[in-house]
Design a protein around this nucleic acid. Structure first.
Lengths: 211, 211
DNA sequence: GCTGCGGTCCCCCATAAGATAGAGACTCGG
DNA sequence: CCGAGTCTCTATCTTATGGGGGACCGCAGC
């Protein structure tokens, strides 16, 4: 406990499952070169704790109550552009991956990653080196070239996914049925689907919507 | 380490995420009255390790590679009707819950449960007392009274969820389009949906299909 | 200025989907 | 043996959906 000890990598964990936090905390704290300094159970807590502790690395789950992972990434990087964020989630849709990485997250891993990979990802990210597993990188590349949906189209897509009819969608968005159809057509074209139900399936697979 | 130690509750963990296994293992092994004797990363391993160790409790995730949780519950209880299985998952669809409990799982918890609840659930199940959190129980009750789908309807539903047209479904199942429509109509009625897309949304929410 | 893009609106038209009703064959359990 | 449930098929009718266009406006950027 003296001169030999280099400064440890200070880690914040953000995940809404206590079990996962425990697992990560146990893994991290067993390492000589890193330690968990705080744990958050939802998005807002994650942001607040980041402010308070200014950790070297934040390990973040994508799906959390109050504010989802992408929003947390955005907000934290807005406040601290040099923040090192490692996404750790079960979602492997190309849209989620693309959003996080293009917004500046330094790494992205899936929860089924082995222990060693998780630890090396944390070390890499702490040194500002990006870390992305090969499968995840492949997904991110898939996303390249695919057309992206406008906000309005995403609004419509969400309603389509809930099973609403064009007429119903029009009513809810205060537009005409014709316009709703126009948006739906655009969605079908961009997602390369021939029916709305297929569009929902594709969108779900890609992570454009979370049912 | 002598006469005072009652026999510990022997636990097997089955989950495809190393992180979650670590978390649970850490929690369990910290307790004086229980210990983890084995960990499985997929369904088949879970069954094999149950055979090998005959634990007092098996903590089981529902979504796993090779064989899903429901199938594991079925198989293990077929071999050992007195097995005590605690489901621990993120899925809260009433169908999953209903299937597991009616097949004889002794408990069902969600992964966002606090540590204490998880530990008391393991203790309860180890003494053959059923444990189900109130939210989960509420879901199970919701399922009561709702009509269940026939196998054929589930086949059709799966294809509908993939975005197939009636004609396409008919071709794949070697039936006429009219018959496909009959099945779809039955599905809509049972799920209380107006359109196929809504049916998919409802079915997904209830856990009848996993996209 | 002009251009591109996004959002809104409109047309026509072919097809898919959903609602309704009836009916034969099969299995299973009372 | 008979009824209940399931799966299959039939036919008709109405409505919703999707494909193909074209058009206008407002706004940001070159």
């Amino acid at each position: 406990m003296s001169a030999v000890v280099k400064t440890k990598i200070r880690v914040i964990l953000a995940d809404d499952h206590p079990v996962v936090r425990d697992g990560l905390a146990a893994m991290v704290n067993q390492q000589a070169d890193m330690e968990v300094v705080a744990e958050a159970g939802d998005g807002e807590e994650a942001i607040a704790l980041y402010e308070q502790y200014r950790p070297d690395v934040m390990v973040l789950d994508l799906r959390m109550p109050k504010r989802d992972g992408v929003a947390v990434v955005q907000r934290v990087l807005e406040l601290h552009p040099k923040a090192c964020i490692l996404i750790m989630t079960t979602y492997d849709g190309d849209e989620d991956i693309f959003q996080c990485l293009s917004q500046g997250a330094k790494g992205y891993l899936l929860k089924d990653a082995p222990r060693q990979e998780i630890l090396s990802a944390i070390r890499a990210v702490s040194e500002d080196r990006p870390y992305t597993s090969s499968q995840v990188a492949a997904k991110a590349l898939q996303r390249m070239g695919k057309p992206s949906l406008t906000q309005r189209e995403l609004d419509v897509l969400q309603l389509v996914a809930e099973g609403r009819s064009n007429k119903d969608i029009a009513r809810r968005l205060s537009i005409t049925e014709g316009t709703a159809k126009t948006h739906v057509k655009a969605i079908l074209t961009k997602l390369d689907a021939i029916s709305r139900t297929e569009a929902v399936a594709v969108a779900h697979k890609r992570g454009l919507i979370h049912l």
